[in-house]
Simulated scan of single mutants.
Amino acid sequence: MKLTRWAEIVALGPGVRMHNGKKTLFWNGEKVRDEHTGEFLIYNREERDSWEVIVVLVGVEVIPQDTFCGCENIEMVIMADTVKRIENIAFSFCKSLEFIRLSRNLEFIGVQAFLFCESLTSIFIPSSCTEIDEEAFGWCTKLIILSVPQHTQLDENVIARTALVEASHFETNHYGNYEDFNEVNQWIKNINGDTDEFALHRACSSYNPITEIIHGIIKRQGLKAFYNKNEIDVTPLQYLAANPYADISQSALMKRYVLDMMGEVV
Rank of each mutant, 00 (worst) to 15 (best):
P14F: 01
E46S: 14
K2N: 10
S127G: 13
I89F: 10
V165F: 09
G176N: 06
Q112K: 12
L102F: 12
E39V: 13
W187P: 12
I132L: 07
R256N: 15
H201M: 07
Q112A: 13
L146Y: 06
M1F: 06
G38V: 03
E231R: 06
T211H: 11
Y227D: 15
F99T: 11
L146E: 02
S119L: 08
E183M: 14
T235Y: 04
I125Q: 03
L154K: 11
D34M: 04
V55I: 15
I188N: 04
D196S: 15
M254T: 15
F68H: 03
A252W: 11
I159N: 03
S206F: 07
C140K: 08
A241R: 07
M1V: 13
L25V: 04
L106K: 05
E212Y: 01
E212L: 05
V58W: 06
F108Y: 10
M261R: 10
D247H: 13
A225V: 04
C140E: 03
E231I: 15
A246R: 00
K219F: 09
Q65V: 15
I210S: 06
N230H: 02
V234A: 05
M261P: 00
D34I: 09
A80N: 11
A7R: 09
D180G: 03
I54L: 09
L106N: 06
G59R: 06
V265C: 08
D49H: 10
T82R: 04
L25C: 01
N208L: 15
F91S: 02
I109W: 01
L154E: 01
I191N: 01
L164M: 15
T4F: 09
S103G: 05
D133R: 11
E72H: 09
I248Y: 05
F198W: 10
A160L: 06
I78E: 11
A7E: 08
T152E: 05
F68P: 00
I100F: 05
C71V: 09
L253D: 01
I132M: 06
I213V: 14
S96F: 02
I232Q: 02
V55C: 07
Q112H: 09
I218C: 03
I54C: 02
K142R: 12
L106I: 14
E30A: 07
W27V: 04
I42S: 02
S92N: 11
L154C: 03
A136N: 07
D194P: 03
F93H: 14
A242N: 10
N20W: 13
H169E: 12
E197Q: 13
A241L: 11
N173W: 07
P149V: 12
F99V: 13
L12C: 04
N230E: 03
H19V: 08
C69S: 14
F181A: 12
C117Q: 04
P126T: 02
T172R: 11
D194Y: 14
L12N: 08
A241F: 06
A252K: 08
H215V: 04
K255T: 13
S96E: 13
E171R: 15
I109F: 01
S249C: 11
H201C: 08
I54P: 00
E61Y: 04
I232L: 01
F26L: 07
R220M: 08
R17E: 00
E52F: 00
D34L: 04
Q65Y: 11
